[in-house]
Write a protein that binds this DNA or RNA. Structure first.
Length: 576
RNA sequence: GCCAGCGUAGCUCAGGGGUAGAGCAACGGUUUCGUAAACCGUCGGUCGUCGGUUCGAAUCCGACCGCUGGCUCCA
């Protein structure tokens, strides 16, 4: 209860801090026009229409003015006034006038502190002096009311906390997150690169990144075969008519790379894999006894994303989905969805993700199929979630046009949320492509298709793994699992002997046989985040042992070669 | 796509109207070392691209390309 009160106080404080910032901006830019200034997670923002662009250097000046206002400890005063009066009060503020027009009540609330008055529902602190710790973080452009067609305002973001300690904790968590940025670590660890010469959003996987990907893919394939999936491969381009039939050409034109012409025919790069899977399904007549059929593919797709949205590996133009399509009877949907959720949870826990959120997205405004089909499918998804006793939230109207879906959002070690597995029920494509089975009654019935991924895409999943582990991958995923460090050149022979022992058991081991000092070799292995460092010198040679150091810096001392080997093998087996 | 900032050696970055700098890396040598950087030397850049201003542009201006932070979007 106490923490709830506290949360409420902090929320109020964040909102009040945005008003204080607005007052400071008004002092520095008397001609400023004001948008809105709500509180957000960890802080607040305020949108302004200003005579010139803000530079990062402007923030300290605004912060200083804010501190003065806080120091003066001026009260927040609220007043309820008639809308007419409010219109006069905000006559010079076009954005505020627009907001006033939208108030359904005949009155409006205003809040005043010092020389600044804002249209605001509140609530606020009693006075500005109650703001304890804040910092302005960055400026950004933001469309008025989030609408691309309306003017772009300048938004200042800030964070605010109940005390200096909480602010410092937040800032150091941010610094930690920046260290884990997959774009930075991807370069440092030699995992991948993106080249201007190739094109934005197009990824080159370097040997180490590719190795991690192969391990993930092998694991993924084996697990899918175990669970009754058939693995398929399909072409990367297809004739344009296929996309016309599916509806993608009209619904998702903006996301398709332009067609290419071959022998007078137009071909498209595939933006998804499902159509080819449908054609495989339709290559023969299917009986109700054959269902469900589950086709899985690590399918590479290309989607044109606007340049501004590209982001490292997390948002790219060419990526490989761990895709599958389940063709089943309506009465099988529930069981299939249950199995997919089980698989997704198994995958997440195998990769070390303990925390996730489940979201059920329901029928959007624009939809295919009938309301009763939607209700049935949504009910089935809901029932599965409840049966599994899963905590989930409903995201109303956020389903795909062809059916409802369940999304799983992963939380990584620094609290970032990633789009992970997704399960989508589809009524549209089975109709458009006439995807049927022969039922017990001898008649044709449409199948239900379930589109699903359990990792998302290889690219985004690697990004997520890198940030979750800060580059220090669990042993089974580490590109190099052990580095052998000979102390002097005379130990190199022994080092290579041990190397072959480990290598025979499939351990990814490497000898650092350069004529460098041990300290340098250890430092570089640390920076590479190699889980085990095996130091060998005179003592170890004499006793057929190695000295074991972990990347945590822990020195475990001498151990026999078989001991170390079984220790590493056990860690690989445990996926730790 | 939009707003703002940025783009200098392989990497991290300094400089800023008068002709290019550091550390690390690379290369050559010396050193053979006990748990996170040995020492000496050498090489390396039409300062993102194209155009303009200027006696002179890496520096100022414009366009384009790319990156960063947001906005919008994300089947």
């Amino acid at each position: 209860m106490k923490s709830k009160e506290n949360d409420e106080r902090v929320a109020r404080m964040r909102h009040s801090t945005s008003h204080i910032m607005a007052e400071a901006v008004q002092c520095l830019f008397p001609e400023a026009k004001f948008g809105i200034g709500p509180m957000i997670e960890k802080g607040f923002y305020y949108d302004f229409d200003l005579p010139r662009a803000l530079a990062p250097d402007d923030l300290p000046a605004i912060e200083n003015r804010m501190r003065e206002i806080i120091h003066q400890d001026v009260p927040f005063v609220t007043e309820r006034i008639a809308k007419e009066k409010a219109r006069k009060l905000f006559a010079a503020q076009p954005y505020k006038l627009e907001l006033i027009d939208e108030i359904s009540d005949s009155t409006a609330t205003i809040y005043r502190q010092g020389s600044f008055t804002d249209l605001c529902r509140g609530p606020h602190l009693a006075s500005t002096g109650e703001v304890k710790a804040f910092k302005l973080t960055h400026v950004a452009g933001a469309y008025w009311r989030g609408d691309e067609k309306r003017p772009m305002l300048q938004r200042i973001y800030g964070v605010a906390f109940a005390g200096q300690k909480e602010l410092d904790d937040y800032l150091s968590l941010q610094a930690e997150a920046a260290k884990r940025d997959h774009r930075k670590l991807g370069k440092e660890l030699g995992l991948f690169s993106i080249h201007e010469e190739i094109g934005p959003g197009l990824v080159c996987w370097h040997p180490k990144g590719a190795l991690i990907r192969q391990i993930i893919e092998d694991f993924w394939r084996a697990e899918h075969r175990k669970r009754g999936y058939d693995i398929v491969y399909t072409p990367h381009i297809a004739k344009i008519d296929l996309w016309k039939t599916s509806g993608h050409l009209e619904f998702y034109r903006d996301y398709l790379f332009p067609p290419m012409e071959i022998e007078g025919q137009q071909y498209m790069l595939k933006p998804m894999n499902c159509l080819a899977h449908i054609l495989i399904y339709k290559s023969q007549l299917r009986s109700y006894r054959n269902l469900p059929l589950r086709y899985a593919e690590l399918g590479t797709v290309y989607r044109y994303e606007r340049t501004g949205v590209l982001y490292g590996l997390a948002r790219v133009r060419g990526f490989t989905q761990d895709d599958a399509h389940i063709f089943c009877r309506p009465d099988q949907v529930e069981e299939e969805v249950t199995e997919v959720l089980n698989l997704a949870q198994f995958m997440m826990s195998s990769f070390g993700f303990g925390e996730y959120e489940l979201l059920l997205s329901t029928r959007p405004e624009k939809y295919a199929g009938t309301v009763s089909m939607w209700e049935e499918a949504t009910g089935a998804l809901k029932h599965v979630l409840e049966k599994l006793d899963s905590h989930y939230e409903v995201d109303p109207g956020e389903g795909v046009f062809y059916g409802p879906k369940i999304d799983i959002k992963l939380k990584d070690a620094v609290g970032h949320v990633w789009q992970g597995p997704t399960i989508q029920v589809d009524f549209n494509l089975p109709q458009r492509f006439d995807v049927c089975y022969i039922g017990e009654d001898g008649l044709e019935h449409n199948v239900v298709m379930i589109h699903r991924t359990v990792l998302g895409s290889m690219e985004r999943f690697l990004a997520c793994l890198v940030e979750h582990y800060g580059g220090a991958f669990p042993v089974w995923l580490s590109p190099v699992q052990a580095t052998i460090v000979p102390i002097a050149d005379r130990h190199v022979g022994y080092a290579h002997e041990i190397e072959s022992v480990f290598r025979n058991d499939g351990i990814r081991v490497r000898v650092d046989d350069r004529s460098e000092r041990m300290n340098l070799k250890i430092r570089e292995a640390e920076l590479e985040k190699v889980p085990y460092m095996l130091v060998v010198g005179d003592k170890e040679m004499a006793s057929s042992s190695v000295s074991l150091r972990l990347r945590s810096g822990e020195n475990l001392g001498s151990e026999s070669v078989p001991q170390v080997k079984s220790r590493i093998m056990a860690a690989i087996e445990a996926k730790s």
